[in-house]
Design a protein around this nucleic acid. Structure first.
Lengths: 164, 164
DNA sequence: TAATTTATGTAGCACCTGCTACAATCAAGA
DNA sequence: TCTTGATTGTAGCAGGTGCTACATAAATTA
């Protein structure tokens, strides 16, 4: 990895971490530059546009999701109902809860096709589904997308504040 | 209704319609003023703040939801599975699809507690649930929230572009 | 009719937005 | 060493943001 690429990688890590913590509502170039320990000038130099940077940060979120899930839930396979309940319970884990909030922010920005959010949302969703499939016992694999839908719906109305 | 209130109501209708059509991404005071046939100056005069206006527009969306649902699905009661499928099918109706997109945009802005979105999201969600409860056969009423979660999840991953 | 309140236009403030032009510095190859 | 290209700072542009000060017009009340 070249020096420049190492620097870019470092910036992406910091920016990604910040977004998970603080969300996407107030991310201007200057604030992101401060977060990444550089200048707005250099962010454009490295990533071309603000959206370029955000796109890479979202890709990092997507890539980190499976690892995060593995770290907490392990590698064993489960039946659909068990997996759903365990995934939903992750909402209690602060680190996860923040990522999920960010995830719904991305969805909100993606629903009218706006880039880079639309592509990122699709990528993250596919990551979710693939991970779920890989942790379901064979007979329940076809239920992966249904399980995912149910999980997302429950997470969503929980975040909004409707008690179930 | 006083003259001022009539004018306010008229503005809210136009702004609400515009938001359903175009989303929440680029709504500045000046654009909303043009949409509502007035000036930014008067928007503040009428609604206090931009968030005040948006809050009222979102309340209008919430209030209109039940009516919209009634108009399309009628008043008969159904079992949970049937109602879920019929509600999900509404996503094919352009008018509904747009409202649902707006709904997810509101959620994205609400997930970190930001007002007026957080309150609006809760209100709209409660409207959904109440409506669903009112159209379920008695024995399925306890399933209302679960049904709602499943519906929202399916709508969401459909909007993102994951084929089910 | 005079006084007072309500409604609205004009102009602008202070700040933020993504991004760029230009120049300076630095490292590496010839 | 000289030159060339990569890297970075400084300053700023053009446009947008929510909102306000001030003045005027219009409606209402005394």
């Amino acid at each position: 990895m070249s020096k420049v690429e190492a620097k870019k990688e470092q910036i992406i890590q910091k920016v990604t971490h910040y977004m998970i913590l603080e969300g996407l509502a107030d991310v201007g170039l200057r604030k992101l530059a401060a977060v990444g320990g550089t200048s707005d000038r250099m962010l454009i130099y490295y990533f071309g546009t603000k959206d370029g940077l955000i796109g890479e940060a979202m890709a990092t979120v997507a890539a980190g999701l499976s690892m995060q899930l593995d770290a907490v839930l392990g590698e064993e396979k489960r039946d659909a109902q068990t997996l759903l309940n365990e995934l939903y319970a992750l909402n209690q884990v602060p680190e996860f809860n923040l990522t999920i909030r960010l995830w719904f922010e991305v969805i909100g920005l993606a629903v009218r096709g706006r880039e880079p959010y639309a592509s990122s949302a699709l990528a993250i969703a596919q990551n979710w589904v693939r991970w779920v499939e890989s942790r379901l016992i064979e007979e329940d694999v076809p239920k992966a997308k249904t399980l995912f839908a149910e999980l997302e719906g429950r997470l969503m109305i929980n975040l909004i504040g409707v008690e179930i």
